[in-house]
Design a protein around this nucleic acid. Structure first.
Lengths: 125, 125
DNA sequence: CCGTATCCGACCGGATACTG
DNA sequence: CAGTATCCGGTCGGATACGG
């Protein structure tokens, strides 16, 4: 079964999947879907990400060819990030994931509460 | 723009997205797509995951209502994991992600090599 | 404005040993 | 077989300071 190769350690797909399995990466790709965005704008819009981590995330995405970085020689300097053609091939899927999360949040929360309640009896400290 | 709420810190969707943005979780969901799987089978099939981390991943997915855990009173005990109906609503999207990774691995690798080569001049240790 | 560099505490995950 | 418990080194990420 070649479709099971995905689970193998040496499967190249795992390397790509590891990168996508990153909450900030997904949020960045999502934010860049409609328009190019400057660094600090991105930093402000995606609440909770530090400058360091956002930079790392963007570098990784740039290295993978999903995001393009363009520097404008203004004073002070302006840097715009946008999706590459390769990156755009991912937007449908990323949007689907986000959409699922929006649609099913209530179900997930309900399941969590139910799960936690059923385990409450064990909390005998 | 309500569709931008996804990026807000307090957005509930972020909580769900954080959980899905996990490489092991995605691989587990993928592996459970076609059939229920026992714990050690899962551990063997998904190379590189430790028992501890696989357990944690499965507990989280169970808590979120995506995965069901069934214990069979055999000797020794047998535990089967499967997708819940809620979990099955995710399989299309997860499969799409995996499929993208398979399709575009070459492009990503090429981009990485190109990126690394362009930065080689800075490696003056 | 857009980073890089450094320090440092918190958390993650592997190894190991033990239970039902 | 399927976990839980504990230890413990490595990594991640926040804070801060500084540079182009």
């Amino acid at each position: 079964m070649s479709s099971y190769d995905v689970y193998a350690k040496n499967c190249p797909t795992r390397l790509v999947l590891d990168r996508l399995a990153d909450k900030w990466a997904l949020l960045v790709l999502n934010r860049l879907t409609d328009e190019p965005v400057r660094f600090n704008r991105l930093r402000r819009d995606i609440e909770g990400v530090s400058q360091k981590v956002l930079t790392q995330t963007l570098r990784n995405l740039e290295r993978d060819g999903l995001v393009a970085r363009e520097v404008f020689p203004t004073v002070p300097v302006t840097v715009e990030y946008s999706l590459t053609p390769l990156g755009r091939t991912l937007t449908q899927t990323v949007a689907a994931l986000t959409h699922w999360a929006e649609e099913n949040f209530d179900s997930v929360r309900l399941a969590q509460q139910s799960f936690d309640a059923s385990k409450a009896g064990h909390a005998r400290l």
